[in-house]
Computed example of a mutant assay.
Amino acid sequence: MISAMSQQPPSRGQRRKLRTRMALIGAAQEIFAERGDLEVSIQQITEAADVGFGTFYNYFSSKAELLDAAIGEALEAHAAWLENLLSDVDDPAEVFASSMRLTGRLVRTRPRIARVLMSGRGALLAAPYGHAPHARRDIEAAIAAGRFVTEDIEVALACTAGCLIASMQLCTVAPEASAEDITDQTVLNVLRMFGMEDTEARRIVTLPLPADEPPSAAI
């Protein structure tokens, strides 16, 4: 039986601590998205978060730990967003393709999270958390269902990450270009690379996408 105490809502102090931690993470995400690094002082981070300097070390031991938390939070929010949007899709190949298409579009729809994902030191599809294990699961399920053909999951993930991030970078340096067209062409090529016939690959990349709601208010 779950105790009554475990069901109690967080106390005021716990809520305040959570808000402070999320303020620091939000400030780090903002700085990292703009700069691609955290080569700023802790003082600058705490000022951006509107948090006292001495408070920082109550939550993080270093800027590196804060950066890992900021990237991790962004990746987890991104993965949860995709999981929610695509929860009713049964075909793993469609889930995989739609995840890529939605992520590529973030360059226009959610530029902050897009910059964090692009600058995340290869974490988008290589980290043990966030979207990476979901992408691996979808590729493996598509192989098991006879939808994809690939001999090495690690190479497949690396190719996927490289293609996706490169297409997002292209959208960034060509602001007049259509992110939808660039992303969908990229996904079409990835599906072909995984052995899918052209007609079926084209059908998948023209499927309507679910409504694009923000992954998280924090990003």
Rank of each mutant, 00 (worst) to 15 (best):
A4C: 13
Q7R: 09
Q14M: 04
Q14C: 00
R15V: 07
R15F: 00
R19W: 09
T20W: 09
T20R: 14
M22W: 11
A23G: 04
A23D: 13
L24T: 04
G26I: 10
A27S: 07
A27I: 08
E30Q: 15
I31E: 07
V40T: 11
V40M: 04
Q44D: 12
E47D: 13
A48L: 11
G52L: 07
F53C: 01
Y57M: 06
N58T: 10
S62I: 11
K63G: 07
E65W: 05
L67G: 02
D68Y: 05
D68L: 05
A69H: 04
I71S: 00
W81H: 10
S87Y: 10
P92D: 01
V95P: 00
V95A: 00
F96H: 08
S98D: 00
S99N: 01
T103W: 03
R108A: 06
T109N: 11
R110C: 09
R110K: 13
I113Q: 02
R121P: 00
R121T: 06
R121H: 09
A123I: 05
L125D: 06
A126L: 02
P128M: 14
Y129F: 12
H131Y: 08
P133Q: 14
R136L: 08
F148Y: 12
V149Q: 15
V149N: 14
T150W: 01
E154H: 10
I165V: 10
A166P: 03
C171T: 15
A174Y: 12
A177C: 08
I182V: 15
V187I: 06
V187P: 00
V187Q: 02
V190G: 02
V190M: 11
L191I: 01
T199W: 07
A201P: 01
R203V: 03
T206R: 08
T206H: 02
L207K: 04
E213W: 15
S216Y: 05
